[in-house]
Design a protein around this nucleic acid. Structure first.
Lengths: 313, 313
DNA sequence: TATAGCTGTTGCCGATTCGGCAGCAAGGCG
DNA sequence: CGCCTTGCTGCCGAATCGGCAACAGCTATA
């Protein structure tokens, strides 16, 4: 089923691994074979594809163009293969997801489990990383579906969906703030704050708001893990600020309380985007999961905003 | 620069020509080589790609899937090649256009001439055909840009632009109707009518309107050529109904007059769509021409509608 | 500074593949 | 029936691919 020129697969592997010998290892061929195919490609195209350093190989401008082409070819090849297989009734393939931490705890596990219940032959790979890395992973073809904060919008990606969730304070059930229905940022700052490090997108959403306040108090804890921040809040260390979708089970168990943030009467939104590489048609099984993901995200958005509506009224 | 597997090019040629021997002739190789590559592809995929008849080969369902994949690969390969060449400053390539007859006389010649004045290395291929054939040619990958009546909207095509032009009566300058500023369909039918055959999209736009009228008079001439209909009108044979954009130079020379159609006080629109194959990124030179085309069409649309506005007021 | 380890590249050679030639059987057409 | 076309298949030379081993260049570490 791999009817494309070997040079394509070899080039692709070299680009991913950054080294000819490493690529040869993953391909189970001799490094000389890989070297020769790359050289032949460069001769055919008439320009060097890599810059050779002692450490390995880096793409040139032409190399990046070829990488984009090869990615298009191989991804569409996967789609073709899945189309052929769906003719015989069997879905088989793998979906690779890159997402930010907020979704890894509550939303994705349920979705994947329910999907695998119906399509047993589809395997999943999920990687948690920062928003910027999610978009990079998609561009490099290392993931099929990406979920990230919608801050910037890279040109080579297609935004499949955009959902807004309210930011809010997360406190332990016995915290003084827990009786309130909404909180302002100033009210939160009266207590110890569990602050996100700049690696997390929430930092960039909150920073401008904090900068507007008169005083900028020292945060009690700074962390780069949503998980850790949530657990700290549950143990009464302080107030963490997150989106409700990132809380998950602990919120339902009653240990935690989510209080929508109210900034001078207006909510603070965090935009969550679902991305796919543009110039690509997804395989049927990937498209199917993607639509479930978008629908589920939309349900959560509606549900949470309805909750807050009730609370605010 | 052709670094893809030979089997892809061979399969593509077989699909286009419908025969292995014909494909071999266009490829300048032995027919046995082509036959073997096709057989190898079928073995690799595990399903027949063609149905063998005594007349030649026809695609199976799997074959059509592979054809789509190969088309994506080869078209993106062209784009890659043009991207690399644009690095060294030279634009070289060919743009293939499929359009309906209305545009072949007035709009396209000027556009192509002015574009070639700036980019001498870009060659053009234009084919005139019916609206349905335009869309088919795009789907089959036989054209890069298609211009057709926007009647239906096929799924594998992307509508780049949609412009509306008024239908109107075309009469000789000394025709009794020529003094009017607008005409109704009933007024036209008082004179001999030069009617379009069903092969032309105008037929399908006019037929429902004519059916509403009390009497359906016998047309004086029926034709499937915009050109012929226009020349007949210029010679005073009767009234032809077309879009103004299809008239071209003869209108400016004063021999012909265009009278916007007025159907019970409302204009009759004809929607002109510009199409490209979806799941495709165009080469830079194609994209450049496409944008000029869309801009020019927009200019015409604005200009003509402004004219009619003045006339109608 | 010397050594060990890594990098990509290059002869050499066997295995594989590709492609051309000629001939085969099968089906349409006059 | 003959004639034409179609796709397919042995046969064989040419081209390509890939593995082994050795080489030169660079980096990090002792």
């Amino acid at each position: 089923m791999r009817f494309h020129a070997p040079a394509l697969y070899y080039f692709h592997a070299v680009r991913r691994t950054g080294s000819i010998r490493a690529a040869a290892r993953t391909l189970n061929v001799a490094s000389s074979a890989v070297s020769r195919q790359v050289l032949k490609l460069e001769e055919e195209i008439g320009a060097p594809l890599f810059e050779r350093t002692a450490r390995g190989l880096t793409l040139t401008t032409v190399g990046e163009m070829l990488a984009r082409h090869v990615m298009t070819v191989l991804q569409d090849h996967d789609r073709f293969r899945s189309d052929v297989q769906s003719l015989s009734g069997t879905w088989r393939g793998s979906v690779s997801i890159a997402c930010i931490e907020s979704l890894a705890e509550s939303l994705l596990p349920g979705l994947i489990a329910s999907h695998r219940g119906r399509a047993r032959r589809v395997t999943f790979t999920t990687q948690v990383m920062g928003s910027a890395d999610v978009l990079d992973a998609l561009s490099r073809g290392e993931a099929d579906i990406g979920i990230a904060m919608a801050l910037r919008h890279p040109q080579d990606l297609r935004q499949v969906a955009l959902k807004r969730f309210r930011l809010g304070a997360i406190v332990a059930a016995d915290h003084p703030l827990a009786r309130r229905r909404t909180v302002t940022l100033a009210q939160c700052l009266a207590f110890p704050i569990i602050h996100a490090l700049p690696e997390l997108s929430i930092y960039h959403l909150l920073q401008p708001l904090i900068a507007q306040l008169a005083e900028t108090p020292e945060p009690a804890v700074q962390a780069n893990s949503i998980d850790l921040m949530r657990e700290l809040a549950a143990r009464g260390v302080g107030v963490a600020i997150q989106t409700q979708i990132g809380i998950g089970r602990l919120a339902n168990s009653g240990q935690l309380k989510f209080l929508p943030l109210d900034n001078d009467g207006s909510p603070v939104w965090s935009d969550l985007g679902v991305y796919v590489r543009a110039e690509r048609v997804l395989p049927a099984y990937t498209e199917s999961f993607l639509q479930e993901l978008v629908r589920e995200l939309g349900d959560r958005e509606r549900q949470e905003n309805a909750d807050h509506g009730k609370v605010g009224a």
